[in-house]
Design a protein around this nucleic acid. Structure first.
Lengths: 218, 218
DNA sequence: ACCTGAACACCGTTCAAGT
DNA sequence: ACCTGAACACCGTTCAAGT
């Protein structure tokens, strides 16, 4: 079960390794659409979502300020593209984490750990995905579809555990929302650096332990 | 136990009831410092934190664009003031909710419900408090003190339940972080409108039930 | 003390024009 | 098709000047 979507590691491209601008002779950029996403992610990682500026992204790519509008309707569309890429990799990550130990309780726990690890590893994507910057862009149907696929991975795991008699028989969607809330809470605290030095992995494992004892059938 | 800090209801002041600009003859604004906070909260409620503009706040108050700098160093300082006011009311709300039923398990549950209700009732404050807009302003010692007081209310309730033998004997700070993560998760989903029509109060009550079964001594 | 208006260096976005 | 440069309507912030 190979991963379908991987996000290229952000720190791979140092400012030195990357060509600051395209060769002046070249007219068309190789794959500007992709480059814009990557540069946006890089900027968000360094400066936060607030610090993301279309002008600086263009300059760092050695491209005119308006070149972006050939590929994205506006700034929100670029953020939506980042979120879509994030949800795609996120859904894959969750599904793989669940499947790797053969599903079941071990898979459920692995999925929870993978959730927080994804947020910590790709904070820029996670913030755009869940930070509420997409209000107006939520209509992008592909984005919604990817988000729902991620959520479906969680719900599916829950239904499986219920069938095995390991979880209480509450509405799976309700259980999934609760698990989601716990995971999201831990992820946000970790990303915002509010765990005061505590290890996010260990923090999430603790949350899972407390969570499971609560939702499993007694 | 009367409340020490109350946030004036935002919808009280309609655009019509409020004087759009101060009387042109009057030179000094009555209490610009306070008015700036209230207008900022109002704007955030209507347009989101992203939509908060010092220029629009000044215009809505009938004041020059630079008048703000007599009271706050910059935009971040104004947001910090909003957050400080929020944390103050938040800490009071949590403490009162805990005390009202006489503390104990009922107080703990009431505190959890009050947490989410505060977020839903004062989303503008909550977003500024926990939305990560305060990175550079976290040095404001009064803000930090108010935030710690809020967290202490939670930790105190946990320690009380532990002494009564109702909670597992884990490190109170660790337990508090977990409870915080769950509450924060539910609050964020509620604020972001991602509960898909589910009632936030009921959602939080469900989370508390699942949470308690997990963390109480068996 | 408190407020003002002009000014500066930034934004996102549009549009006619280039290749 | 894809990119450019000038332009427009916005930002936050500074500063000399007013009362």
């Amino acid at each position: 079960m190979a991963s379908r979507a991987r996000i290229s590691p952000p720190s791979t491209r140092s400012a030195k390794a990357r060509p600051a601008r395209r060769a002046p002779g070249r007219y068309h950029h190789g794959d500007l659409r992709r480059a814009l996403i990557e540069e946006a992610v890089l900027t968000i990682q360094q400066q936060g979502v607030e610090g993301l500026t279309l002008r600086s992204v263009a300059e760092r790519l050695g491209v005119s300020r308006t070149a972006l509008y050939r590929h994205y309707r506006d700034k929100g569309a670029l953020l939506a593209a980042v979120a879509r890429e994030g949800f795609r990799a996120f859904g894959d990550t969750l599904a793989e984490a669940f499947a790797a130990p053969g599903g079941g309780p071990a898979g459920f726990q692995a999925m929870g750990r993978a959730y927080v690890r994804f947020a910590v590893t790709h904070p820029a994507h996670y913030r755009v995905m869940f930070g509420g910057f997409l209000d107006a862009c939520n209509r992008d149907p592909e984005l919604v579809a990817e988000a729902e696929r991620s959520f479906a991975a969680l719900t599916g795991a829950i239904v499986g555990l219920q069938r095995a008699g390991l979880l209480c028989p509450d509405d799976p969607a309700r259980l999934a929302r609760h698990v989601w809330a716990v995971s999201h809470g831990v992820a946000m605290l970790a990303i915002d650096g509010q765990l005061r030095g505590a290890d996010p992995d260990e923090e999430m494992q603790y949350a899972i332990d407390r969570l499971l004892t609560g939702i499993r059938k007694m």
